[in-house]
Amino acid sequence: MSNIFSKPTSLADWQLVKVSGQDNRVFLQGQITNDINRLSEQATLYAAHCDNKGRMWSTLLLFQRGDDIYYIVRKSVVKKQIAELAKYAVFSKVTIEPVQDLNIIGLVGNAIPSTIATKLSNISCFTENNITYIKLPLPQMRVIMVTPEPIQDDLLPCDEWLKLDLQAGYPIIDDNNMATLLPQACNLQSCDAISFEKGCYCGQEMVARAQFRGANTRGMYVIKGTSDVLPEIGSTLEYKLAGGWREGGIVLAAAKLDEKDGVCVQVVLNNGIDLNTPFRVYGNDNSRMTF
């Protein structure tokens, strides 16, 4: 795979947001599922931002530059997500805004300078010469570069980064799926994205109930196969039973794997489903997918 990624990858489908001000840490501690005290200039934080029912507005990758906290979020949700976050900022000295003076690009394989890879061997991020480097370990080492430099034109397409996120098991929350899923329905408890020891945050009661009282009955899966079309985000798939096809699941993301109709789909399904179950895009006889 390294030979494929000999140049940087576009992250145009993601947005960088800055949370600044003297109350930024205390404020975010009351809003996200993870413990902000774990965040530093050398340690990133993965978390969800939920409504008061525990349903996710988005997932966030947080990092720190000086006194400011930044997070990376899907661009399709950022306007609504910031608006929901800002509702609780009225009595805090914080400013939440999309970033205009920094850009983000992805580095994988041969595109990662060896000196950067070495510096990230025992930490998850660092800032040097006004450029922040963020390590993602799955499905192979990746680096997000946050830089004031303009983005070059010759980049690999966003879909290449999306495929890696699907393989890594990072849920993709786009606008069609906002405020519909608990974090555990997307396996965030397995991604070290939820702290069950920290204090209160928006949606905490429902997230805790899902964890300790079995209130969540769904999980996120990746299925692969062939299809002449990709399913729409937020739509359902069909799975085969003895009596025919039955509708089920929520599609989070989908990507083409090759030019021969190979596809990869991230979907939320009821737990306990038979892993030999065939799936297809709704109503499409030309698609077949399995776990």
Rank of each mutant, 00 (worst) to 15 (best):
D228H: 15
C200P: 08
L107W: 08
G30T: 09
I144L: 08
D228L: 12
L11G: 00
Y170V: 13
S40C: 09
V26S: 15
S92D: 11
V108N: 12
R218F: 11
S2R: 06
Q189L: 11
G199Q: 04
I116W: 00
E238D: 05
T44V: 09
Y70N: 07
S195L: 14
Y221F: 15
P278C: 05
Y282N: 14
I223Q: 10
D154V: 04
Q152P: 04
R55S: 12
S10Q: 04
F126S: 01
T132C: 08
T127W: 01
M1I: 12
A215V: 03
K79V: 05
L181D: 09
G30H: 00
N34S: 14
L61F: 13
Q81N: 14
V77S: 08
K198W: 06
S121M: 10
Q64C: 10
S6M: 08
Y70L: 03
I131V: 15
L120A: 12
A253H: 04
I250M: 04
M145F: 00
A43Y: 02
P231Y: 03
D274H: 11
A179P: 01
K53I: 04
Q204R: 12
N34W: 14
M56C: 13
K198V: 10
K7S: 11
G283C: 05
G243K: 10
C191F: 10
R209P: 04
V281W: 03
R74I: 01
V267C: 00
A210S: 15
A47D: 12
E128C: 00
S124F: 03
W57R: 04
L138F: 14
D159T: 11
Q81A: 14
E149N: 09
F27Q: 02
V94P: 00
R280C: 08
F196W: 09
Q29T: 12
R280G: 09
F196Y: 14
S6I: 14
F279G: 01
L181A: 11
I112M: 07
Y201N: 10
T132Q: 01
S124P: 05
F27R: 02
G109L: 03
G249D: 00
A254Q: 01
R280D: 06
L60A: 10
P157F: 06
V263G: 03
V251R: 07
P150S: 06
F291E: 11
N52E: 14
G219Q: 13
D35N: 13
I172V: 12
L138Q: 12
L275S: 11
R213G: 10
D159G: 02
S40G: 05
P278Q: 11
A89H: 03
G169R: 14
P148S: 07
Q31P: 05
D165L: 08
A48I: 05
V263T: 09
F5Y: 13
V265C: 10
F5G: 01
Y282S: 15
F291P: 02
K7L: 10
